[in-house]
Write a protein that binds this DNA or RNA. Structure first.
Lengths: 216, 216
DNA sequence: GTCTATAGGCTGATAGAC
DNA sequence: GTCTATCAGCCTATAGAC
């Protein structure tokens, strides 16, 4: 399992190898838990390259964190999520989020470590993005309530439940096998898209003022 | 904010002060992020007391983690959750979980750090307890499906969504003020019981085969 | 039981050769 | 750009006085 070697050479390949290895390790162990030497070894690169290419460990961490967070916000804006119908918009948000995680599988781990630390490691970059996400989702829910299609729930509490549910699926993936071993009816390897469909259904049915249109 | 001083004296008070301070710091920073010196200072106690009373930092971590996890399982069994009607049982689980968190406010932080680490720090103590929780919740859902009262969802995916939603509420509490500032309609200080009610409603409506009895 | 002092290892960052 | 060598600081744990 420790056979990650750098193949290509040159400065850009070094940068990428470090970025990639750091993403993995920061997500699993957090900022302090992932040491510079570990990252460099996993990248197959000399330790001091971290300082040359990223101005130190903190710079590398910021670079790693910015990617997925900014992509999520960009996708939200590109899709014009806020302007969609409430049901459609929330469904698309779930798909969009799982799509971003597919490009950045370690995003949930990074995000949660950051949240647990109280945003202490990288406040400003992330905080603004979080506000956009929360605002968009809460806005869609508010719109649905106003239109009489959703129950009068608290949009922010709903957002917490939704985001928590999404993040939890991905971060528990490594442990799932060990915990579910022995449960005969447990899904072998639940895919993200299967879970996304489940979350959409639970969310829309949970929100619906009346019973929503059947999908299946 | 750094005015935590030990008042009482004696060995038991020292133990408790360390346990208490460690709970706080491990939950916020994880095992490696919380240093022994930080814990001792917060407890108002000498650093070497960690080794005397807990056989080192790891021993202290295990002691801290065991408490809430075992209490959760004990509560599940004491309540006889598995034998209740599905709707009642799931509702009680949500209340029971938030109740345990009230006794152990740092439980969600500890749990998530552990999950993110892939259970690497304390596998055996926690893994068995997790299996009990998962098994009980999934069992209730399975029962509801069998009785025709729930839709034929995947019980394990449902459990992931439920637990994720619950945990996320508590771990985001510190950041909530900063993220929600400016959103006029955001709840000032959402209580755990208010959130618990929200989660119950979303869960049961999301699961219901037909429209469930209105509560309000 | 509690303290001080310190050992011994690891960590992040830098200096300087190539 | 990349490497080796190395420093100063921090970390956990222990020894030993009280």
């Amino acid at each position: 399992m420790k056979s990650k070697r750098k193949i290509a050479t040159g400065p850009e390949a070094t940068r990428q190898a470090l970025h990639c290895a750091a993403t993995e390790l920061f997500a699993q162990r957090g900022f302090k838990g992932a040491t510079a030497e570990l990252i460099a070894r996993k990248a197959g690169v000399n330790k001091s390259m971290i300082n040359y290419h990223f101005r130190g460990k903190k710079g590398l961490y910021h670079a790693v964190l910015r990617g997925p967070v900014e992509e999520l916000v960009a996708e939200i804006e590109r899709t014009g999520l806020a302007r969609l119908e409430p049901e459609e918009g929330l469904g698309r948000f779930v798909e969009l989020f799982t799509g971003v995680v597919e490009h950045h599988p370690r995003f949930p781990g990074l995000m949660l470590h950051e949240l647990l630390a109280g945003g202490s490691v990288a406040i400003p970059e992330v905080l603004g993005c979080l506000r956009t996400v929360v605002g968009t989702v809460a806005g869609l829910i508010r719109k649905g309530i106003r239109l009489g299609r959703f129950r009068p729930v608290d949009p922010y509490l709903t957002h917490i439940g939704l985001m928590g549910g999404l993040l939890h699926f991905f971060i528990t993936a490594p442990l799932r096998g060990a915990v579910l071993a022995g449960f005969q009816d447990a899904p072998r390897d639940p895919t993200a898209s299967k879970y996304a469909a489940h979350v959409q259904e639970m969310l829309l049915r949970g929100l619906a003022a009346q019973s929503p249109g059947r999908r299946k």
